[in-house]
């Protein structure tokens, strides 16, 4: 089972990010579950969401305490207590940041990949909502499923121009990370 924890701030589309990832997995035939950590959400407050993916059905509903991967929507969240806690040995952090990965990787002592998701979103969506870009980058890094699965998931939520721009954003973000870098780790966990 592959477990992912997504950290963001209210308003960044954290919960939608978790739903998009689970939907994309479902569309490509996996069992998937996504849920927020149920805070009294308000704009700017730290928000957590969880995703589980597996080839076989599962029934647990507890929170993800030892994720295989973290997706962090805001670099400042790295300093919030608990954000990095429980990340499994060999697990990776996908971070929305302009800074390059190497410095952060040394600083945190963990595998880090950065993607400038907010800048990409501002350029393409004209809104600072990084979630589509991050999920696309995550799919490119892990090759858990083709990017087209995300397109199917986006179609469940968006239409018309919003859909088209989100898809453009997804393709741009997927090109911005090393494709398949986390493939082995991700596939071992989700099988």
């Amino acid at each position: 089972m592959l477990e992912i924890r997504i950290h963001g701030r209210g308003g960044q589309g954290n919960v939608v990010a978790s739903y998009l990832l689970a939907l994309a997995a479902f569309e490509s035939g996996k069992y998937a579950q996504a849920f927020p950590s149920f805070g009294a959400e308000r704009r700017g407050a730290p928000v957590t969401a969880f995703v589980r993916l597996d080839d076989a059905p599962f029934r647990r509903r507890c929170q993800v305490r030892e994720p295989d991967f973290l997706i962090v929507q805001d670099q400042a969240l790295l300093h919030v207590p608990g954000v990095l806690s429980g990340l499994k040995e060999g697990g990776g952090i996908l971070l929305n940041a302009k800074a390059d990965s190497d410095g952060l990787q040394r600083q945190l002592g963990r595998k880090v990949v950065t993607v400038p998701a907010t800048e990409l979103a501002l350029a393409i969506l004209r809104k600072p909502v990084p979630n589509t870009a991050l999920i696309a980058a995550f799919l490119a890094l892990t090759e858990l499923m083709p990017l087209s699965a995300l397109n199917e998931a986006l179609q469940k939520r968006f239409r018309g121009e919003v859909l088209a721009r989100n898809w453009e954003l997804a393709e741009a973000a997927a090109k911005g990370v090393p494709v398949g870098l986390w493939r082995e780790r991700a596939h071992a966990a989700s099988a």
Partner: peptide
């Protein structure tokens, strides 16, 4: 509440 109502699953 939340654990089911806010969980996306097949």
């Amino acid at each position: 509440g939340f654990v089911l109502t806010h969980t996306l699953e097949p």
